[in-house]
Design a protein around this nucleic acid. Structure first.
Lengths: 341, 341
DNA sequence: TATTAGCACTCGACATCAAAGAGTGCTAAC
DNA sequence: GTTAGCACTCTTTGATGTCGAGTGCTAATA
């Protein structure tokens, strides 16, 4: 059995209707809803076929049909091919300038959540492809050194290093030279043990103290930033009865609080990346088990210099995909533009 | 009418029972529960008195009684005076060492949440009483300076400052000297406009650029850190039916996500501070409107050098206060001890 | 052959009703 | 002051019946 044009139309009608109402949709509704001019009986036959093909399911005998994951997938794929509907309203969704990146991200998540009524998340861009621009060791007091590393994107990392013996100004200068000549211009993830050991040799392998300092600086640079993820509008899940029952809500909320869980999503998004930068995961397609009753839309944004982050929408499977994708694109573009200016 | 000893015993029995069961408690239960050897009829009379005094309420006619806020308050106050019950189990609640404060705090919140089954929060200690230890300006490139400030507690702040003209090494050195001589040893919240203007004068008022740099450094130092608050176990609220209905849960979850709201709690806790460092807010006593159906217990911890933070438990009004307070004290002590070592 | 009308059937949603049970307040007796 | 007894109230629970939406199937129709 094939999915002919009429079946497609009917399927689309079913899904559209279900997205709007959230109620299983019956044959009579479709018979009136579409311009196919078919009786409900015919529709019933077609629906039986669509069910057999796996695009729709019946919650129980003698109920209307609702889309299956496969059905949604079909809908999203055909929809995505259509020319994007410009949602006028979304144009008002504008990010304001923010000094700190953290606040910018929080703002973005919040904006997205309020304008879509879904839960949202955003991850801070990762920076391990950035290049080291500047390193400096300075003496805070006799037993403490301060190491500061500046990388592309004005990313600053620093630590206090305890030292057992006070280092002379000369040694410090020498160390600074050494670190800068070897590490400047390297991407953070290019710094290897080999380079570190070369530096140690040049510094004079006999000095443990200096070796420790070099190790500590290298650690500081390469140390993976802790995952920074911000969420907003978590409580929007209560708008959708299919997600709002206690056990599901509890699981979801837990996932939102344990940002660690969301990193799955970020990984997945970055690895699935395509031309548009937009991913749609429906139901069981999602990488996060606790969100299998949800649909997730993610986008990769880029704050320049390879600093890629993920912004996403998490909502019920019957979400307004067009609008959600539109909003996400709109925001992604704004984020991408920020660096260019 | 007075609260004589017998009434007190009955009240305590009612509350204890209600804390355990979460069900309105009737006269017959108390008659058997206590060692007072009174019939249920007598208890009924006493209960009528207690209701008149405002310690207990009836959800509806012909239901048992539940404690009012006033009742809980009485219970907590008398309980707090009692010798603290040592909860054996809590001794296993131990913080592990963590390099980064952020992770330590997250761990503390999580530990507290899992061992109490309530929602928890913790705020990073504020640092504006800390003293400046070390300031350094360095040139990253022709048009960018890096300013690093180290304060007590090895608190590091930094910024990149754009400069229009390249500053000579000499100027930079002079600026470094100036900044250090004037600001070292001052607490962050002691840095005033007066001091800044003195520095500007000494630097040579005619140079706008230098003035701007000084301003920017002062900004960096005094800039209030963004509120850092971590939460854990938010979904524990679903364990308590009285908090788990959709509208309440949604409101609560929103409060937990909008960390800003929790800052109210932190302010309140820091200003109400008493000898024990522990606060209990019951129902309407809480500073956060959306938590008026909850009880909140907060503690002030100190990571040394005046860096005070707040750790708190948010649960239903019928929470196990003794256990919660015990757990909070236990954790507070551990946090306080970390600095001492 | 595809479509449609008709019809019996299924199932959830909802309202109604009765019975059970917990608990009270009051009165009168101890 | 305490208690037994009793009528009364109110919630909870389950059973029952009705309604309506929607189906699948069959037979008639274009």
């Amino acid at each position: 059995m094939q999915l002919d044009e009429r079946k497609m139309k009917i399927l689309q009608a079913i899904i559209r209707n279900y997205l709007e109402t959230g109620e299983p949709v019956g044959s009579r509704t479709i018979s009136k809803y579409t311009d196919l001019n078919l009786s409900s009986a015919t529709i019933r036959n077609e629906m039986a076929d669509l069910e057999e093909l796996g695009y729709i399911v019946q919650p129980h005998t003698s109920a209307g049909r609702i889309p299956s994951d496969k059905g949604y997938r079909f809908y999203v794929d055909t929809m995505m091919e259509d020319k994007e509907r410009e949602v006028e309203e979304l144009k008002g969704m504008l990010l304001e300038k923010e000094e700190k990146m953290e606040n910018l991200l929080k703002q973005a998540a919040k904006l997205l959540a309020t304008s879509t009524n879904y839960a949202t998340m955003i991850s801070a861009p990762s920076s391990h492809h950035n290049r080291v621009k500047f390193i400096q060791l300075s003496r805070v007091d006799a037993h403490q050194l301060l190491a500061v590393v500046v990388a592309e994107g004005n990313l600053i990392k620093n630590t206090i290093l305890p030292v057992e013996e006070e280092l002379s100004d000369e040694t410090l200068l020498k160390l600074n030279m050494l670190l800068n000549t070897h590490l400047n211009g390297l991407a953070i993830d290019e710094i290897s043990l080999a380079i570190i050991s070369v530096m140690k040799q040049q510094a004079g392998i006999h000095s443990d103290i200096i070796g420790n300092v070099i190790d500590a600086v290298a650690d500081t640079i390469t140390h993976e930033e802790d995952l920074e993820v911000y969420t907003s509008g978590t409580n929007n899940i209560f708008r959708y009865p299919e997600l709002a029952d206690q056990s599901k809500a509890s699981e979801l909320i837990n996932a939102f609080e344990e940002k660690q869980v969301l990193s799955e999503l970020i990984q997945q998004n970055l690895s699935d990346e395509n031309e548009t930068g937009i991913q749609v995961y429906i139901g069981n397609e999602t990488p996060i088990q606790s969100m299998k009753d949800c649909s997730i839309i993610t986008a990769t944004y880029e704050l320049g210099e390879g600093m890629k982050g993920t912004i996403g929408i998490i909502g019920p499977k019957r979400m307004d995909y067009e609008r959600a994708v539109g909003a996400l694109k709109h925001l992604k573009n704004q984020l991408d533009d920020i660096y260019k200016k």
